[in-house]
Amino acid sequence: MEVRTIKVFTTVDNINLHTQVVDMSMTYGQQFGPTYLDGADVTKIKPHNSHEGKTFYVLPNDDTLRVEAFEYYHTTDPSFLGRYMSALNHTKKWKYPQVNGLTSIKWADNNCYLATALLTLQQIELKFNPPALQDAYYRARAGEAANFCALILAYCNKTVGELGDVRETMSYLFQHANLDSCKRVLNVVCKTCGQQQTTLKGVEAVMYMGTLSYEQFKKGVQIPCTCGKQATKYLVQQESPFVMMSAPPAQYELKHGTFTCASEYTGNYQCGHYKHITSKETLYCIDGALLTKSSEYKGPITDVFYKENSYTTTIK
């Protein structure tokens, strides 16, 4: 009895394709271990004539594949690729409408935090270190965002349907971005203890939790000093293409032309909904596939993004 075979390709990165001759009487799992086709788990399936010449994702289970996976995804987590594939199996079914010149995501599976993050990423200057993220990001900007969303979920250790947080998501993504040249110098002034300067680099240099107003941050924000008295913390120097200011959701007025974009969060910790506000020729609110415009805006804002380049204080 002759062994019926077909020729397929296996890959971990969709760049390096490895030619395989597979036995049609055995499952993919018996031949390769966990195997995925377009995100779908085909591990328990036997090869079919229609699979001839198709590319299958496999887990990096030998040295060659491990090197290829690390170079593309910059992670050695053995569960990463499987999590990416199972997320992709959902995100490829989502709709990605162009809204006001940006790629958004039609609401499904509690994905409003991903839509808000995706919209924000198209408006701030950011370059990702893992080629996987950078490639998928370019495709997302062009309207094909399924891979990018699935990668975000995998890097953030999230599953489809789980509630997510924009600030946490951005923080994970910033860790995989090139923020080497970003720098922030802060000064804390206390009447009792004097003053202390701190220099922050990388992710810490672009994120701040405690106030939404970048102007206020430049002037000074009140913080408790270690001595128990009130101290003032203010920005001395900022070198970065953008800054992200966050605070627990509270009524906040966004003035046209003073910011790049913002995240609105309605609801409580267990259950809520994100919308995205962007400042173009007027203010726009993007909620999944829905767009509304207004000249002014007041609502429960939790993150505001500002364009920056270089700032030095005039406070002496």
Rank of each mutant, 00 (worst) to 15 (best):
K229M: 12
D38P: 04
A205D: 03
Q98H: 12
M207W: 08
T120N: 08
F56A: 02
Q238W: 01
V236P: 03
I15P: 00
T226N: 12
Q197H: 12
A250R: 15
T120C: 15
Y84A: 00
E281T: 03
F305M: 07
I315F: 12
Y234R: 12
Q30L: 09
M85K: 12
D63S: 05
G202N: 07
N147C: 07
N157K: 14
V67E: 07
Q251P: 09
T266Y: 15
V21C: 13
G29R: 01
I286N: 04
N129G: 06
Q195N: 14
G267C: 10
P60T: 07
M170V: 05
L88P: 02
A40F: 13
E308A: 07
K127H: 14
S86Q: 15
S279P: 04
Q196A: 10
A154V: 03
T232P: 04
Q123E: 10
A142M: 14
G143E: 00
Q175R: 09
K93P: 12
K191I: 13
L254I: 07
L59G: 08
L17G: 05
N268C: 07
C271V: 14
Q237N: 12
K44H: 15
T91M: 02
V12A: 10
V188T: 14
K183Y: 08
L254D: 06
I15T: 10
M209I: 09
Q134C: 11
Y311T: 06
K93C: 07
Y214D: 14
C225H: 11
F305Y: 09
S279Y: 03
T314A: 12
I6A: 04
L37D: 12
L186K: 05
N89K: 12
A115I: 01
M209L: 14
K183A: 08
P130I: 12
C156S: 08
C193A: 00
T75S: 13
N110D: 07
T35F: 05
T314Q: 13
F174G: 03
T258I: 05
T292I: 10
K280C: 08
Y284G: 06
S104A: 04
T282Q: 11
Y306L: 04
V189D: 10
S181G: 09
G202C: 06
D287N: 09
H51A: 05
V3A: 11
F128Q: 02
S79V: 15
G161T: 02
S50A: 12
F128I: 00
G299V: 05
C149P: 00
A115P: 01
S213M: 05
V189Y: 09
K219F: 06
A205E: 01
F70V: 11
L283G: 06
C149A: 06
W107Q: 15
T64C: 09
P130E: 03
L114D: 02
M245D: 07
N129T: 14
A146I: 00
T232W: 11
T314G: 15
H74K: 06
T266A: 09
V189I: 12
T260L: 13
A87G: 00
Y297G: 06
D23E: 13
A117H: 02
F242W: 11
L65Q: 04
L88W: 13
N157G: 13
T11Q: 04
A117P: 04
C225T: 03
V99D: 00
E168S: 13
G220R: 04
A205S: 12
R167N: 12
H273W: 10
R184Y: 09
E281M: 02
A132E: 01
P97V: 09
Q270L: 14
I301C: 06
L102D: 01
V206M: 06
T292R: 08
T35W: 00
K219A: 14
V236N: 06
G194D: 06
G288Q: 01
Y172H: 14
T313Y: 15
T232N: 10
K218R: 06
I105Y: 00
T258G: 08
T64F: 10
Y274A: 08
C182I: 07
A146T: 02
R83V: 01
T260G: 07
F259H: 03
M24T: 10
K158H: 00
S279G: 04
V304D: 06
K316L: 11
P249G: 11
H90S: 13
C190Q: 00
F305I: 14
N110F: 01
D303S: 06
T278H: 04
Y28D: 00
G228W: 00
L173Y: 00
L121V: 13
A132P: 03
K229P: 05
A146H: 06
T11G: 00
Y306S: 04
V203K: 14
M26S: 13
A154F: 02
C225S: 03
A108N: 07
L151Y: 01
K127P: 06
K93E: 06
L114K: 01
K298N: 08
E239I: 13
C149Y: 04
I45M: 11
Y73D: 02
W94G: 00
S263Q: 00
T232G: 04
P78C: 04
Q196W: 13
C261T: 05
V189Q: 14
L88R: 03
E215R: 06
L179Y: 05
E239L: 09
R184L: 12
N178T: 08
S294Q: 15
S279A: 07
T282W: 06
T43Q: 14
C227Y: 01
V189T: 13
K316D: 15
L283C: 09
Y274F: 15
Y28A: 00
A247F: 04
T159Y: 07
A108P: 05
N268A: 15
N16L: 12
V21T: 13
F9E: 07
V203N: 08
T27S: 10
T55C: 10
Y57R: 03
L119P: 03
H18Q: 08
K280A: 10
K183L: 08
A115S: 09
K316S: 12
N61Q: 08
P60C: 15
T159K: 10
I6K: 06
K158Q: 05
Y28S: 00
Y274Q: 05
C227P: 03
Q175F: 01
Y214A: 07
H176C: 06
K95Q: 08
N187C: 14
T43K: 07
L212V: 14
A145I: 03
T55W: 04
T120R: 05
G143A: 02
I223L: 08
C261F: 05
D303Y: 02
C193Q: 05
D180L: 07
E52Y: 10
N268P: 15
T10R: 09
E281Y: 03
G101C: 05
L37Y: 11
A247R: 07
N157Y: 02
N111I: 04
T211K: 06
D135P: 00
Q30S: 10
G53Y: 12
T35K: 00
A150G: 02
